[in-house]
Simulated scan of single mutants.
Amino acid sequence: MPGGFAAQPTTAPIQPTTAPAPPASVPLQPVPGPAFAGQPAAAPTHPGLPISAPAHPAQPTSAPVHPTSAPAHPGQPVAAPTYPGQPISGPAYPGQPTAGPALPGQPAPGPAYPGGAAGGTGRGRRLPVVALVLAGVLAVVAGVQAYQIHRLDDRLAATDRRLADAQGADGSRLDGLEKRAEALEKQAGSAFNPEAVASAVLPSVFRVSAGQFTGTAFAIGKPPSGGGTMLLTNFHVVESVYDGGGRRVFLERTGQRFDATIVKVDKDKDLAQLRTTARFTGLVAARTPVKSGQQIVVVGAPLGLQDSVTTGVVSAFRPDEGGSGPVIQFDAPINPGNSGGPVINGSKEVVGIATAKARDAEGIGLAVPIKTACDTFTLC
């Protein structure tokens, strides 16, 4: 049939090893060229092979031939026709979708390019993770710093406590040192120092000249209301003047001579009170009685020798015997002229008035307690 297909034999002919010439009854079909867009491509025929029938219009075909695809070469097999109900791999008819490349304006499936939707989704998922990691790191750093600050505060508090304890200990030691220093000062002050005692007492001690007799007198207490200075001595020193009706005696010291008046006397206690218009510093009377072994200094003018100093200790305190009152026994050397001189303790206080010494004996001197004189004349 001209322009038609040759009748198909029931059995496939044996293909020769070389391609035979086409029979005269079957016209040669031209090799199809490139199909135009929207038109089906004709399947090429192979010499000696049955020609496949075109797919049914209702059956979809395989991917259409791209307009730029090359024409089929002679000798290539044509895809076999599909069975009824199966899609044909031939060209698609107009209006039917194909599995080929997407038409202009339609999204084509393929790998996502950098910066596309897929890449953006991955980066968006990574940002929260990175933020969480950074937050965790910052939290750990903040915790470590808080712990270090806490430890530092504890160390500072411990250091402050140690400093306070050290300062308290130093303060206690300082207080102890101050107390010891005060005790040492008291001990040093109470230590017997005849030189210091003599230096403090001598300006208030005088030689008394009463007629043909000499002795010693010393200033005592505060100045009287009328001015001048009150002094004490023994009665037997001024006895000759007093019994002769006189009241005037003289005080001598370092080449100077001062007039003095006999104010009162007590013959039984061997005491006499004098007064001068000159101003001298009075000595202080001791408030406590002497004790045996207490060290003393005796100042006077033995045999007329002014500013003579001797030292010793209190041997005993003798109570009143025969109504003359108590006496102090001491071992400091005294001689005629010491009568009326002060007996001084280590605190530069007057404890007695030297009165006499035992004859034919050494180291036995006697003194009237200063309290007796102060009570007799209301002095001190």
Rank of each mutant, 00 (worst) to 15 (best):
S324L: 12
L305H: 07
D307T: 04
V314S: 11
A301N: 14
V309G: 04
G300H: 04
A301Q: 05
K291T: 15
P302E: 12
Q295S: 15
L303V: 03
P319G: 14
D320A: 14
Q294I: 09
D307E: 15
Q295E: 15
S308L: 06
R318D: 03
V314W: 03
K291M: 12
K291Q: 15
A316I: 06
V313M: 09
G300T: 10
P319W: 04
V314K: 10
G300R: 03
V297W: 01
S324C: 00
R318H: 09
G323P: 04
S315R: 07
S308V: 09
R318N: 10
F317E: 12
G322Y: 02
L305C: 02
P302A: 09
F317D: 04
G304R: 01
T311G: 08
G304F: 03
G323C: 09
P302K: 06
S315N: 11
P319Q: 09
G293Q: 07
R318S: 09
G300P: 02
V309I: 15
P319N: 12
G293N: 09
G293P: 05
V314I: 15
Q295N: 14
I296L: 14
D320R: 02
G312T: 08
V297M: 03
V313D: 01
G322C: 08
G312Q: 08
P319C: 10
E321P: 00
L305Q: 14
Q295G: 10
D320V: 08
Q306G: 08
S308T: 15
E321W: 04
D307L: 00
G325K: 05
T311R: 13
G293T: 13
L305Y: 11
G325Q: 10
